[in-house]
Design a protein around this nucleic acid. Structure first.
Lengths: 219, 219
DNA sequence: TAAATAGTGTCTATCAGACATTATTCT
DNA sequence: AGAATAATGTCTGATAGACACTATTTA
């Protein structure tokens, strides 16, 4: 078997968070000296550095660190997009990841957040990547603890309920939702901690584990 | 941004079928002149040919055509495996696919089929790829028409039931299973066609559509 | 008519959703 | 007391599983 021309290998990351009640994806301005699409907003991404990255997951974490200063969000490989024409430079292959972080992790950073349901036109096949990532996120939200990664450390039950609804995009019965969440052991009450307001105070919760937990049944 | 060394880009395919009641994966003998692991059984795979393949899916179909003579089985991208050490030659990146075909498509071809629950040690990280593919297949089987791709064109309800059980690995209530399948419209009876035996003859069915259909609920 | 498998009718336990009720704070 | 939100108790309709029963063939 002789040597072949190898494709370009890159990693792109769709970083999700909640902004003003909408599910948003982070966009980064491409450098002005980029060979293609200079100065255009796109998903953060970059070449795989074989001397620097242990694997594509490490590459994705490096991209997030460099472009958003994030250390350890929820990160999952999504899909690998490839083809002759997706990058004007050459036959290319992009391993797409998606990440989920609470909005509190992004405060102060000057980032561009775009609501996923009202996205501008993006270069390459990045609109397709976001669409696929949203589909995955929404799909998993219905039967996993994934939406909890959008919440800050402490939260009330109503916040949890609201985040699930926002992500999935449908109304969820409050009583059934509470039953389900309690059965699955997704969250645990923080003893003695309550959120006060002009009403009965709400119990504060935290996630039971840092890992993603999949439910055995639908919400 | 300067030029970087690019990783090796390959595609590997886990081809599933049923052999003697077991879920099996196809293995191919690597050529004797291969640079690494010559003559060893492994998942069929190959380099991405940027001049020949439109994308990695086309590459996977080419691999299946060349190594198993298959034209259009169910094919789905699984995951991209990557890293410094997974290939002794260099930093490499393998886009893994899995395919599902009825055993009848493989008769006559001299192929090696290994039961997935009793797999030999494979080169590279191919055991890991098969494990991930089996998990995906079993996961999807429970709420989709995926197992129908293991069946021949015509089949009885009991065969359908049996294939689902074999793939998922648990017993499924026959009455509930029939109700569910009927509700989902996965299969349609073939008018006037029955399979005869020393008992009441069984209605023959075919799949309703060629595409994968996902259920709204679990079996 | 016995054996074997195909296919259906129906009861029940479980559970999601709906609704009503109680709880606890602030104004 | 009234407003506001938190949290729980209980009824009901839908449905998965269990079981029993009927159907149709060959031997």
């Amino acid at each position: 078997m002789g040597e072949h021309e190898t494709p370009i290998a890159t990693v792109d990351v769709a970083l999700f968070t909640l902004g003003e009640g909408n599910l948003c994806v982070m966009l980064a301005r491409r450098p002005d000296n980029a060979k293609v699409f200079p100065g255009v907003f796109a998903l953060p991404g970059g070449y795989v550095h074989v001397t620097e990255d242990d694997d594509t997951g490490a590459c994705a974490r490096r991209v997030l660190r460099d472009k958003a200063g994030l250390s350890a969000p929820y990160l999952e490989q999504l899909y690998t997009f490839s083809g002759k024409f997706r990058d004007p430079r050459a036959w290319s292959l992009s391993v797409a990841y998606y990440a989920v972080v609470p909005a509190t992790e992004l405060t102060g950073k000057s980032l561009c957040l775009a609501p996923v349901d009202d996205l501008p036109a993006l270069p390459f096949d990045h609109n397709q990547i976001v669409t696929a990532a949203v589909r995955r996120l929404r799909g998993k939200a219905a039967y996993s603890s994934l939406p909890t990664f959008l919440l800050p450390e402490k939260f009330t039950f109503d916040e949890l309920h609201s985040v699930y609804q926002q992500v999935i995009g449908v109304e969820l019965n409050k009583v059934s939702f509470r039953r389900k969440i309690e059965n699955q052991g997704i969250v645990v009450p923080i003893a003695g901690e309550k959120q006060y307001g002009a009403h009965r105070p709400a119990q504060l919760y935290r996630v039971a584990e840092d890992a993603l937990k999949e439910f055995d049944q639908t919400l």
